[in-house]
Structures are given as C-alpha cells and as structure tokens.
Amino acid sequence: MYPNQPAQPYPNPYGSQAPPPVRRRWWQHPAVIIVALVLLPPAGIALAWLSPWSQTKKVVATVLSGVWFLLAFLSDPPAEEKDDAKAKAAASASASPTPTPTSTPTTATPSPSPELVMPDVVGKAFSEAEAAVEALVDGELRAGSAYADVSLPANHATWIVCFQGPAAGARLVPASADPNVDLVAPGTKCPATTGTALRPKPKPKPTESPKPKPQPQRTTPAPEPTRDEPDNVYYKNCTAVRAAGADPIHRGDPGYGRHLDRDGDGVGCE
C-alpha cells in the first residue's frame, strides 16, 4: 500500500441496507424497570443503569427511587404490624403472669350542688327583683306595700324594693322558700320600718279634766269623857297607874285612856 494512497473504509457487510434493530432483553423493558424502581428500589436502580437509557434518565430514576425507598423505610410501620407487635407483647406477658395487686373499690363522692342564697334586691325595681329571685325558687316572689296606708296597685313592676325577706345571703330551699318584698312607688322615700303610715293622722289633743274642788277638811271630835270618869283623874303612863294601884285599868275606869291601852283590847297596863 502506497503511503500517499487514502485509506479505504471497511466494507459494509449488509451492503447498502440499514442494520437490523437490536432486540432488548425482557429486563431492559422500561415498564419492568419502572415497576422494579417502585416495588424494589435497589433492583430497579441496577436495571436502570444496565438499560440503554440516557445518563440524565438514569440519574433521575436513581434519585427518585432512592427517595421513595428511604421514605418507605423510615415511615412508621402499618397499623396491622403495630397490632401484631402488641399481640405478641401481650402473649409474652401472659406467658409469665405476675401477681397484680387487688384494687379497693372506691365510692365516687358526688360533688356538692352549689348553695342557693337570697340575692340583695333592695333598691331595685320589682320586675328586676322578681326575675332574680324566681330563677332560684320554685314559687313566686310575693309583694306588698311598705306603707300601711298605701295600697299596692296591680301593675307594680316599676315600684322600688325597700325591704326583703329573707335577708340577702340567706340560704334558700327552692321547694319551700317563700321570698317577699315591700315596695314603695317610684320617687317615694322608704320608711324606717315596714307598716309605717305615709300620711299619719294627727293625734287628738287630750281633753283637760276639771280640777277637783277642794274638800273641807273634817276634824275628828275628841271623845267625850265618860260620865263615871272623874275629870280630875289622869294617868300619864302605866307607871303612874301602877303607882296608884289601879293596874290593870279597864275601859270605863277612872283615868283610863287609849294611851294606856296600846293593843286596844280595853285593858291597859296589863
């Protein structure tokens, strides 16, 4: 072969026709590779790199399959697997029973109901007091006039409460409570005590009784001396009577006097 002679190309064994297409193996089919990448990522990645795919497709398939494999591996196991694990743990625990302490049954103590108390309604309108009280009791709120000489009208919703019973803060029993209030008309001052008259009647002036006339004083006349009693006989005391030998001296005897008869039995100087 001469040095300046151009090289001749190799002759085409197929002549002027195109070469026949290359037949792919079954594991080189794209569908098989994609299924393997999803279900079994390591095998799918290996098949992808053995396939006639381009370099870019192989890298993308490897990354996506790797991410899918990591997510499936790191995620929580299915609920069925958890239940199976719990069942196995329970079975192992029942295989070696341990004595369980007996628990003493405790009686649940019911929480006490809130205590109902009488609200403070003094100074409020009857309609407001009625709504506050009747929400706590089964009966109705009784109303009366705070003044004895003022009648309570049928419509007294705007009348003001002056007195209430029971007092504010008193315990209420809804079934048996009997609350009541005493009212005055709007703009009327409350009395000091219930039952007071708003317009008291003037008291009648006492009539002067005539002064009694002075009665003339009556003087008791001195007892007249007894006829048989001599006027010249007089005893100053019992000593004088005894000295005269006239003791005891009787009524009617000469010289008898009441000053000698202290017990008044008619016998003196006994």
Rank of each mutant, 00 (worst) to 15 (best):
D247N: 09
D253W: 13
P230I: 07
R218W: 00
G245I: 02
K236F: 09
R227G: 14
P248T: 01
R258Q: 08
D253A: 14
Y256F: 15
H250D: 09
A222Y: 08
L260V: 02
P230E: 04
V233P: 03
A244M: 01
N232W: 15
D231E: 14
P254Y: 06
G252W: 14
D253Q: 13
G255Q: 11
K236Q: 03
H259F: 13
P248Q: 11
N232T: 08
A246F: 06
P221E: 15
P248V: 02
H250P: 02
Y234N: 08
R218V: 08
A244G: 06
A222K: 15
D231L: 00
P223S: 10
D228Q: 13
Y234T: 07
L260A: 11
Y235I: 05
R258W: 05
N237F: 12
E224R: 14
A246Q: 10
N237A: 06
C238K: 13
Y256A: 00
E229P: 01
A222P: 14
R227Y: 05
D231I: 00
P230L: 10
G252H: 06
K236V: 09
T220H: 06
D228K: 14
P254N: 10
D253R: 12
R258I: 01
R227H: 06
G255E: 11
R251D: 13
Y235R: 00
E229Y: 12
P225A: 02
K236S: 07
V233A: 06
R218N: 01
G255L: 03
Y235A: 03
